[in-house]
Every structure is written in C-alpha cells, then in structure tokens.
Nucleic acid binder design. Structure first.
Lengths: 151, 151
DNA sequence: CATAATACTTGAATATTATTCAATATTTAT
DNA sequence: ATAAATATTGAATAATATTCAAGTATTATG
C-alpha cells in the first residue's frame, strides 16, 4: 500500500513549492509582472535556494528534536567539512554548521522518538571522526525556520 | 526609493509560497487532483504550517549566523516560554528551543555582520531574565532548513 | 555632460496550473 | 454485512504564471 502523504511530506521537505506571485503583488501593490521579474532575478542569481514547506513535525513523526554539539578527533580538525558532508545526506538532519567555541560542529536532528535518535547517535554519530557528542534535547519549540509555532 | 527585492525577501522568509501540484503529481505518477486533495488535507489539519523560501543568506545581508546558548535567571526557570515568546518576534531569530542540559534555551540568529549581532546581544539578549549567553558562531553552513548548500 | 548600453517596469495576450464538481471507489465504523 | 465516512479521479472552469514587446529608468562611458 503506497502512502501519498508520506511521499508528499518527503518532497515538500526540501522543495517542490513556488512563490504566490499574485498574492505578493497584491500585498506589495505592484504589478504581478514586476514581481515575477524580480523573483526570477533572485532565483537566477541563486539568492533564493529553494521553496519548501514547514511542518508540524510531531504530526509527521519527527516529534523529537535534538541539537548535537560535536567534538571531532584531532586528525579531523583540518577538514570538518568532510564529516559534515557525510552527515548532511541523512534526512533526519535539518542543519549542520561548523562552529567556533568548545565544539567543532553543531547539528540539528529531527527523529520520531528516542529510539530513532539513539539509533542515529549509535550508528551514524559514533563513526566518522567524531569523538564526543553533547545532546541538547528540545523540550518545546517556539520558532523554527523563521516560522512561529502555535499560540 | 522603494526596494522590491527587500520586500520580497521579507515576505518569502515566512510564507507566500505554495506547492507545485502538477510537478508533484508528475513526480509521484498520480493524478493532480489526488495530490491537490491530499495537500489540502495536510493544510487543513495544520500538518503543514507554511510554505517559504530558503535563501543564500549572505546574499540578503544575513551572512552571520550564531547559535546562542542561554542561561535564564533562577526566577525565570518556571516559565522560559515567556522569554522565548518575547524573542521570537525579532526577524533575526530563525529558531528558538527550550532545552535540557546546561542551558535553558538555544536560539539561532542571523545578522548582517558582527555589528548587528553585537547590537542584538547588547539590546535584546541582555534584558529579559537572561543571565548568561554562550555564542557559537557558524564558520560554514553545510545544510540549513533541510536544504543542502553549495558543492 | 551627453549619449549609449543595460537593467527594470508594465499591460496585454497566451500558456499553464489550481480548483471545483460530481461520480465512483475504497476504507472504516457499527 | 451494511452503512457511513474518506479518498480517488476525469472533465470543466477559474485563477495564475509566463511571455512578449514597448516604454522607462538607471548606469556606464567617452
């Protein structure tokens, strides 16, 4: 049995959306052709990278969110990007940043529950030149991806 | 002089986008009316919260990204949400989470440069029951909002 | 400063896409 | 087993994006 919903969520996570030109034109009180032209410019010069959906993550089985602070092995200091690029392919990974401070990297992870999170830490984060991880578990999200949540 | 680009970026940050139903239908090899129906369901039940753009943040003067770990004053422990809700209105704030661990809150901030970041820390974060902040400055972003960046 | 080149704006026409609707099929509840 | 509620779908329509060509404004160049 195929699940359309699941496939939809997967596609809308990263893209398959487009701006609502007419609505923007009304809001800004400009002709829609002017809005169209300007948006195409932003796309052409890659200022806009994607159009995507923001979800109620609990409703799509990504209810657990963790920030993971990562320490790399000394021999990976030189190219933290290698590790990061391996990690970013995983769908559970919302963001990856190489950072200053007491850790070399911070990643934001969304999993269904603690089981899936544990599997990810065990199977993925334990490898790849990572020597230590510190998990910060989100108890409540007030804003995500610039979108304010609930109340 | 009005800047259409600036207004566009502001609107697309949080919304004013919509799914590309025909493209999704082609990709999933389903009739577009079926896709339409299912997406409307997801919207009605609020599983989808918004459709928005993801940017090359450097190109829109939000080139500096910081994660800020926050310690609240003891008398704010009980309602970290009060502080969080005050902070989330700021456009520089990409996300706010109340967390477990050595800090009560983590926020992700995007500013044009160190000056704007400093102003934010000084003017906004110094108030509101926050007693200590630890900044993690992003040196390089490999993925953001589920969207992989460059190379 | 003058003028050419380039970039931006816009209304009208067209192409494409979303949406509605009604019929049918499927799933779920009793 | 049967009824009720949900989901799928093609055809028709409504709405929207896109193209085009003309005009306007801005920027570069001598």
């Amino acid at each position: 049995m195929k699940s359309i919903r699941h496939d939809l969520v997967e596609l809308l996570h990263k893209g398959y959306c487009t701006p609502r030109i007419v609505d923007i034109a009304k809001k800004l009180k400009e002709p829609s052709t002017t809005i169209h032209y300007n948006i195409k410019q932003l796309e052409k010069e890659k200022t806009i990278r994607a159009y995507k959906a923001v979800f109620d993550y609990k409703a799509i089985d990504e209810g657990l969110c963790n920030y993971v602070l990562i320490n790399l092995a000394p021999d990976e200091y030189g190219n933290p990007e290698r590790v990061g690029k391996e990690l970013r392919a995983y769908p559970q990974v919302e963001s990856i940043d190489i950072i200053t401070g007491g850790w070399e990297m911070i990643i934001k992870l969304r999993t269904k529950d603690m089981d899936e999170y544990y599997q990810f830490v065990k199977n993925v984060l334990s490898k790849k030149g990572i020597v230590k991880t510190t998990s910060l578990t989100s108890l409540k999200q007030l804003k995500t991806e610039f979108v304010e949540l609930q109340e």
